[in-house]
């Protein structure tokens, strides 16, 4: 019962808090004061109370796509083991996760195209290009832990109790690194897309939601935050499995480390976004190839450990 309450509080608070923390650290690193830590909460509340303006050319698909995106993100946050204790909906298959993410992206692209704005069109095509480049690495990074224990159920793969999946740290480290790079691409963060600018040349994710306003935009931002939590959580869980030999077996302590790890990843991302410049669009595949290589390494080590 306590774990359910803690889990619900985590889901409600952590995503937007992570976004606020990310913005704050980034501002600090760039010598700005920055928005308060709770700014994403205020933003969502403000947008929720605003009137929404829909394009005249938009059909039902526009709102449907945004809503479906939010629903899938909510379902995934409830069923993926992004925290150390077991989720509410058990037995999510890893391929279902990949396909649900693809479906969310598909409807996202549709709703971006639906308003008929050129911004939506080019961002849709860019998002599609990025997503098919990054999908193999996501599959391989999640498959490697599955190979260790001969299962493709997420909650079994990420269970802390079994000894089999914790005595092979290399697999988990590669999976963790691969998932982090994948997260950067999936969430269109810095090396492939600059989330701060609203310049035609650089936008991917921002241009997709440029037609959304009011409640639609609030839903978009919230589902983005949920996805960020999901990817960072998975990456941190992989890392915690790698070092699980040194961790105490206390569940609450592991939860504490998971949350700290996610904030640490957010800080790393803020640092990357301060230091790095956006890659030239044609150089993006070179960067994404590293995620795939990490996934391949993870799978090789997992297969080597099995024989």
């Amino acid at each position: 019962m306590v774990s359910y309450i803690v889990y619900s509080i985590m889901i409600l608070i952590l995503p937007l808090l992570l976004m606020g923390f990310l913005q704050k650290i980034k501002a600090k690193l760039q010598n700005r004061i920055g928005a308060p830590l709770l700014q994403p909460f205020f933003n969502v509340l403000k947008l929720w109370n605003k009137t929404q303006i829909l394009s005249e050319d938009a059909s039902f698909l526009f709102r449907f796509g945004i809503l479906l995106n939010f629903c899938i993100a909510t379902y995934l946050i409830l069923s993926v083991p992004w925290l150390n204790f077991s989720p509410m909906i058990m037995g999510l298959d890893l391929f279902l996760l990949v396909y649900l993410l693809a479906a969310a992206r598909f409807f996202n692209i549709l709703s971006a195209l639906d308003t008929g704005s050129p911004f939506g069109a080019f961002s849709g095509s860019r998002e599609a290009a990025l997503s098919f480049l990054v999908e193999p690495s996501l599959v391989l990074c999640l498959l490697a832990p599955g190979l260790l224990i001969n299962s493709n159920v997420m909650s079994e793969m990420f269970a802390f109790k079994t000894a089999v999946n914790s005595d092979n740290p290399a697999v988990w480290i590669f999976a963790s690194l691969g998932l982090f790079i994948t997260a950067l691409v999936e969430l269109s963060r810095m090396p492939v897309d600059d989330p701060n600018t609203h310049l035609e040349l650089t936008m991917v994710h921002e241009a997709m939601i440029i037609e959304a306003s009011g409640r639609n935009l609030a839903l978009c931002e919230y589902s983005y935050a949920l996805k960020l939590t999901l990817f960072f959580g998975l990456s941190v869980q992989c890392f915690l499995h790698a070092v699980s030999a040194f961790l105490p077996s206390n569940e609450w302590l592991t939860l504490f480390f998971s949350v700290i790890g996610m904030f640490f990843l957010a800080a790393v991302l803020a640092m990357l976004e301060t230091v790095l410049v956006k890659l030239k669009w044609t150089k993006c595949p070179d960067f994404i190839a590293y995620a795939l290589t990490m996934g391949m390494f993870a799978c090789i080590v997992a297969l080597r450990g099995r024989t």
């Binding site: 595949p285 070179d286 290589t293 391949m296 390494f297 090789i300």
Partner: peptide
């Protein structure tokens, strides 16, 4: 380069 990296894997 990306393909060369995958080949070397």
């Amino acid at each position: 380069h990306p393909l060369a990296m995958h080949l070397s894997v």
